[in-house]
Amino acid sequence: MSTELSAPPADYTGYVEKEQHHDYGGDTVFGFWIYVLSDVILFATLFAVFAVLGGNYAGTPELKDLVELDYVLKGTALLLFSSFTFGIAILEANKGNIKGLFSWLGATWVLGAGFLAMEINEFIHFTEAGAAAWSSGAWSAFYALTGTHGLHVLAGLIWLIVLVFLIQKEGLTENNKVRLMCLSLFWHFLDIIWVCVFSVVYLMGVL
């Protein structure tokens, strides 16, 4: 009888059915991870610039004469604890507890803003002491590196406010959970970059 293949059903498209149940959230978070890694390369170039120019003071005050390590340690602690509080916020989000989520995100925001305020205060102090971004190659490299990190923290703080408004408006929808995961990746990444900054710029600069 018929050894030919039967005609495909009318709605046959040739696509495998399974592929249509795509893990949209996972793909978005993975895409954001790729962005974070590209940001790592951006910071690597700034670290390379600092490694090459970091000693070219050209008569301007040196980092080891201006920096107060107690002060840097306090800022470092603020950022580290904010990374921890964001983790707890994610746990609250997983429980579906929006109130707990908002309190821990609030704590994260205050700690992050505290870090940024301390950094800006330090920049003003350095600039007044004759170490401005335009003073020498070493100081240009310093402000480019620490300033770029500071701008990232500022972006994270703004994103945090926007996300809280979104969650307040729409609730903990799938989309908002994915956004929260992306911001948490971003926030932890900022702390990892800061570990490199305080080790290479401040601690090794004081030696």
Binding site: D27, F84, L91, F198, L203
Partner: peptide, 29 residues
Amino acid sequence: KHHGGAAHGSLKEYTIGLLLCIVLTAFSF
């Protein structure tokens, strides 16, 4: 609930991480 590319932690995990980071930062400074 696991998304591909995004694993979730636990309170214990975050606390151990925080303590280790405090020790390492304090040691460095």
